[in-house]
Amino acid sequence: MRVTTKGQVTIPKEIRDRLGIEPGSEVEFVERADGAVELVSATEPDMLSRAIDRSFEDWLQRVEGTGDSNLTADDIMAMTRDRDVGDSH
C-alpha cells in the first residue's frame, strides 16, 4: 500500500466491509504500546472503546514493575518537599 503526498491510503475493500466503513464514515487510528497502529471505526463506539482499552492495557503491561518499590510513603513525601530520603527534618 502506498501513501500519497497528502498522506492518504486506500483501505482495502475486505477491511472496509468487515468494519462497516462506507464513504463518509469516521475512523480512528489508535496507537498501541508496542508501536502497532489499529484502524477502528469511530462510528462504532464499542470498537473504538475496545481499541482504546487495549492500548491502555498495553501501556500498563509495558510500565508494570518499573516503579521503585523500595520507597515508602514517607520517602516519597520527603522527596516532594525537597528533602533527602531518610532525612526526618
Rank of each mutant, 00 (worst) to 15 (best):
M1P: 05
V3C: 01
V3G: 04
T4E: 05
T4C: 02
T5M: 06
K6D: 14
G7W: 00
G7F: 00
G7E: 09
G7M: 04
Q8D: 13
T10H: 05
I11M: 02
I11Q: 02
I11F: 02
I11G: 04
I11E: 05
I15E: 07
D17S: 09
D17Q: 08
R18H: 09
L19D: 10
L19M: 07
L19N: 09
G20R: 03
G20M: 03
G20C: 05
I21R: 00
E22F: 02
E22L: 02
E22T: 13
E22H: 05
E22P: 01
P23K: 04
G24E: 10
G24T: 12
S25E: 08
S25L: 02
E26H: 07
E26G: 08
V27P: 00
V27Q: 01
V27K: 02
E28S: 12
E28K: 05
F29I: 07
F29A: 07
V30K: 01
E31A: 08
E31I: 06
R32H: 07
A33M: 01
A33D: 05
A33I: 02
A33R: 01
D34R: 03
D34C: 04
G35W: 00
A36L: 05
V37P: 01
V37S: 06
V37W: 00
L39Y: 01
V40I: 00
V40Q: 02
V40D: 00
A42V: 04
A42P: 00
T43I: 08
E44I: 06
E44Y: 00
P45D: 12
P45S: 10
P45E: 12
P45Y: 04
D46Y: 09
D46S: 15
S49L: 04
S49G: 12
S49H: 07
A51T: 12
A51H: 03
A51W: 00
I52P: 00
D53E: 15
D53F: 06
R54W: 04
S55Y: 06
S55C: 10
F56N: 14
E57Q: 14
D58T: 12
D58Q: 09
W59H: 13
L60D: 13
Q61K: 14
V63P: 01
G65V: 11
T66F: 04
T66A: 10
G67I: 14
D68W: 09
D68V: 13
L71Y: 11
L71G: 13
A73Y: 11
A73D: 15
D74P: 06
D74I: 13
D75K: 08
I76F: 08
M77T: 15
M77N: 15
A78N: 12
T80V: 12
R81A: 15
R81D: 15
D82S: 15
D82M: 08
D84A: 15
D84V: 11
V85C: 08
V85K: 07
V85N: 10
D87I: 10
S88L: 09
